[in-house]
Amino acid sequence: MLQRLRDLDFMPPREAGVSPLVVRDLTVAYHRTPVLRRVNWTAPSSGLIAVCGPNGAGKSTLIKACLGLVRPLAGTVEVFGRPLARQRRLVGYVPQRESVDWEFPVSALDVVAMGRYGLIGWGRRVSKAHRQAAMDALDRVGLADLADRQIGQLSGGQQQRVFLARALAQEAQLYFMDEPLAGVDAATEQAVLDVLRELDAQGRTVICVHHDLQTVADTFDHVLLLNGGVVAEGSPATTLTPDNLRATYGARGQGLMG
């Protein structure tokens, strides 16, 4: 099945030396309240990346700006060396689970197939091959049995895995995931971690908003501490220092590492 995903992959191999994501002087405001000020960040080209920071630090806003979902006041985002608008197919997205209406009358497979819509194009039907690719992705997260189930009848963890399968079906090179491990059961956590490591092993870049500082070092190779701007970045060992945590989270920052 993995072989299958690779066979379907039409993306050119990553060009040597081009960062998957370069953010320059990015400033974003909601209703004139600045959320991000002059963020400059070049994502490393390998390893799993976590974006951490307190509530309201602009973590979700950063990935939404990188995805073109919120318009920045200033600054640019480059994906594999080019403006995002020309690289949409290289980018995959796992939004927060609460962002959609789970009562919507679609099945798990329907939702995963939506990951293929960018590859299919406007006004065309979902072909058998695309449907099969969606099924394979669903199988990859262990939900093949529930393909026909209406999404509202899945557990929270299963819903999270459906979103993950949808991202797999996108066959992107750069993934943005908004808290994929928040509030999930053990089986889902394992499935998510497996997929993250597999994507990493395939040379794809995964950037996750992550809230649990205690598990950052177990899962991620690189961490970006954010609070309205970049506070620090680097490997978890060198970045999650008491000083950096205080600078990011305020006085209670030290306590967060337990």
Binding site: L67, R88, V100, V106, M114
Partner: peptide, 20 residues
């Protein structure tokens, strides 16, 4: 445009990122 109507109604964010 059933496909486009569906994705934009269910998940506008994803729709925008895949070019719908």
């Amino acid at each position: 445009f059933f496909k486009e109507l569906t994705i934009a109604s269910f998940d506008p964010g994803l729709a925008d990122t895949v070019g719908v």
